[in-house]
Design a protein around this nucleic acid. Sequence first.
DNA 1: GGTCTACTAAACACGC
DNA 2: TGCGTGTTTAGTAGAC
Length: 631
Amino acid sequence: MMQESGTEAKSNGSAIQNGSGGSNHLLECGSLREGRSNGETPAVDIGAADLAHAQQQQQQALQVARQLLLQQQQQQQQVSGLKSPKRNDKQPALQVPVSVAMMTPQVITPQQMQQILQQQVLSPQQLQVLLQQQQALMLQQQQLQEFYKKQQEQLQLQLLQQQHAGKQPKEQQQVATQQLAFQQQLLQMQQLQQQHLLSLQRQGLLTIQPGQPALPLQPLAQGMIPTELQQLWKEVTSAHTAEETTGNNHSSLDLTTTCVSSSAPSKTSLIMNPHASTNGQLSVHTPKRESLSHEEHPHSHPLYGHGVCKWPGCEAVCEDFQSFLKHLNSEHALDDRSTAQCRVQMQVVQQLELQLAKDKERLQAMMTHLHVKSTEPKAAPQPLNLVSSVTLSKSASEASPQSLPHTPTTPTAPLTPVTQGPSVITTTSMHTVGPIRRRYSDKYNVPISSADIAQNQEFYKNAEVRPPFTYASLIRQAILESPEKQLTLNEIYNWFTRMFAYFRRNAATWKNAVRHNLSLHKCFVRVENVKGAVWTVDEVEFQKRRPQKISGNPSLIKNMQSSHAYCTPLNAALQASMAENSIPLYTTASMGNPTLGNLASAIREELNGAMEHTNSNESDSSPGRSPMQAV
DNA sequence: GGTCTACTAAACACGC
DNA sequence: TGCGTGTTTAGTAGAC
């Protein structure tokens, strides 16, 4: 019993590991909290190492600030003589939706200025406002520069004092306080710049072109909102008292992005807010189209549509565009809440982009693979369409016409139910409803190998899809995978739950089936040893268990190689899941249900598995022919 | 339609 | 007594 609970805890741990990358965030936040929860006040009880560390951090901060200033100075020097980036003015500029752009606090660059001027979209009044704001910004930069100089002098002074007079707690506290003040000053600068940019964007004065390296995204990469600063801030906050950190709400919200979700539950809930997704705020979706419409229709806005504010979780009714702008400026001004919402949105977008990139990469690999291996022109489009359809759901604007989902009339995509085929993921198995009668290894007397499972391992680990193997095959596999080729019943259980998400539910049912199989089949031999009872596999019995059908059954071979065996199940699986998973596209990922991404993986891997499976039997059926050729 | 096979469910016994 | 383990039986369903 103890063993069972222990292993369950272990599997829970793995489940956490399999989860989103948020675990790191939690860890980071946890460590921060832990540092604070110690209840000690580092500013008072600071040690020599802490002081050195703090000074090092301060130096780093100063270095970052120095870089920041240098960069801005360079940009200012270039402001008059800069050529505009290469861009065809007739071509509609690619614009980053405000929802994305406003997450990247940055100062408006000379290039931007020039771009704005080139676009000739500004009225004289707007230009004046812009210039005033830019001047104010430059003033702020000068202030920062002066502050930086003072900080540097103080730091040198403190270093000298430390060298000569040793370390006194009061001084250490002063260093920490000054360090904090400096950080705050930097943060305020960032905030001001962000606010400035936001105001420009809200007024429609600024559009951002991601394709141009010299434009606003560049400062981000160069550290205008430096990751170093974020890291630095985290280190600083972890070394300071809780009072100090909580006393700077805006700062902590701004820079401790990894802790936003944990420190502000109300903000975290935005992710779960259905409005956030239904509003189409996933700005990875057709940003080009949004920006185009924004340009073509001056009264359109990515955050405004159908008389409703599309700010995540808002949905305030705005009768006209002007009232929307008022609403936007009043309700969604730059404050903690909006900043946190932006952060959340940014994370959502990042996740989606990551997912998209992954799937694109897979698609590319598939295309490359099939292009190399297959000489049949008809064979390639089949799997390509499968994945394209999946990709389509994520980014309709990027999908080519040929990647549209199959219609039921498409000859290569029949909707006939799956009746047979090796390693088939069916609608039934996808949704884990009821027993299935699909046998992979046993059917053709080809024991599943580690490769068979490994190919689909990640998929089965994460998706609650019933593996198309018999219990006997799985038990055998579990035992053979063990170092000593023997497992206790509990270890077999653990293998099942570890390898297959499907077996993490309904334990009573499948465990009973496992026991039943162990007892029923002669190929499983129970052996008593010091550990207790362990189960081994009698390979002879296992091979005897079924007659060899594959070599002597031409129709079966034909079936295995038929397009029906490959294409039909895959298409059926895809189409069924397209129909049934259209809603839980992303929402079910966290619940363990197969997403379309997983489905794509499954289809891909099942395809590979099927191909390899047939390849392994090539000598029996049609030597020298590829599966596609056999089709 | 019969047979084989696998799966599920359940009952029961035994040991800890 | 409860739980895990092991065995056995019965019913059902898919594949051949």
